[in-house]
Computed example of a mutant assay.
Amino acid sequence: MTAWQGDREIALQGSKQRTMFAALLFQRGQVVSDLRLGELLWGDRPPATASAQIHTYASRLRKQLAPAVTIRRHHPGYLLQVCHGHLDLELFESRVRFGHSALRLGGYEESVNWFRSALRLWHGPALSNVTEHLIQIERPRLEEARLTALSSLIDAELALGRHARLIPELVDLVIQHPLQERFRAQLMMALDQEGCREEALSVYQEGRRLLAEELGVDPSPTLRSVYQALLSGESPKVAVPTGAEAS
């Protein structure tokens, strides 16, 4: 969790101050109550001086982040407003939307460029140096957004026939996220396009076993459709997500 003024990093002091800044940013112009801030800063045991400490963090943030960021007291909490284009998360989401739009229209090269541009905004794990209370609530959503953008980038690259260079990356992604069926389906398609159909079928069987053992479920229709296409001797096509699935 970092803030920058031009090329200079603004030194936000301590995990509590960073947590308050992040909590206000996530609400994007909505009031975050003192009660909610207290839960994110200290969990279910805020100190007796919680309100005073929150006030101190807000004052320090105002001084450090002005004029790009405005923090106002708005009962029962605080409200943050940031100039448009100054928040990486907003830029990421905007570029991902453009990427999905290009992907749906068949503009695969343009889509690749948008997704790559979005993913370059990530610098390591989301929400470093904040409290565990905030990490537990917000990091899964952010990580899911990153993985969705990455898998959409891979869809576009597969559509461009770049399967050979994608295989090592997809192997690593399946190892890191063994229950992520979309990466597994993409690896199967890449292997098939490279002429390794038997290996692709083995990737499916491994995924089916893991899903049954870990979650007690069968493979999704998407993963099954790729498998059935391979069994039929067909080359499965990239299924471009639409609507909420791509958001």
Rank of each mutant, 00 (worst) to 15 (best):
M1I: 07
D7S: 11
D7G: 11
E9M: 12
E9K: 10
I10G: 12
G14F: 14
S15E: 15
F21N: 07
L24R: 03
L24I: 07
G29I: 10
Q30E: 15
S33T: 14
L35H: 07
G38Y: 02
E39L: 01
L40G: 03
W42K: 01
D44N: 00
D44H: 03
P47Y: 01
P47T: 02
A48Y: 04
A48I: 07
A48D: 08
A48N: 06
S51V: 06
A52D: 10
A52Y: 08
Q53D: 11
H55M: 06
T56I: 06
Y57Q: 10
Y57G: 03
R62M: 07
R62C: 09
L65F: 14
P67R: 11
A68Q: 12
I71N: 02
H74M: 11
G77W: 03
Y78I: 01
L79F: 12
C83V: 13
H84R: 13
G85Y: 13
L89N: 07
E93Y: 12
S94A: 15
R97H: 14
F98T: 07
S101Y: 15
S101N: 14
G106H: 15
G107L: 14
Y108W: 15
E110C: 07
W114N: 13
A118F: 07
L121S: 13
L121A: 10
H123A: 15
G124F: 00
S128N: 11
N129Y: 13
N129R: 11
V130C: 04
E132M: 01
L134V: 01
I135P: 00
I135C: 03
E138I: 05
E138Y: 00
R141P: 00
A145K: 04
L147M: 04
T148R: 09
S152K: 03
S152H: 09
I154Y: 09
L158A: 04
G161Y: 06
L166S: 02
I167L: 08
P168F: 08
P168Y: 11
V171A: 09
Q176C: 06
H177R: 05
H177I: 01
Q180V: 00
E181A: 01
R184F: 03
R184Y: 02
Q186N: 07
M188I: 01
D192L: 06
E194T: 03
E194V: 04
C196R: 14
L201N: 10
L201E: 10
E206H: 12
R209A: 14
L210E: 07
L210D: 06
E214M: 13
D218V: 09
D218G: 08
S220G: 03
P221W: 03
T222E: 06
R224L: 08
R224W: 04
R224F: 01
Q228F: 09
L230P: 05
K237E: 15
K237I: 12
A239K: 09
A239L: 14
V240Y: 07
P241H: 05
A244K: 05
E245H: 05
A246G: 15
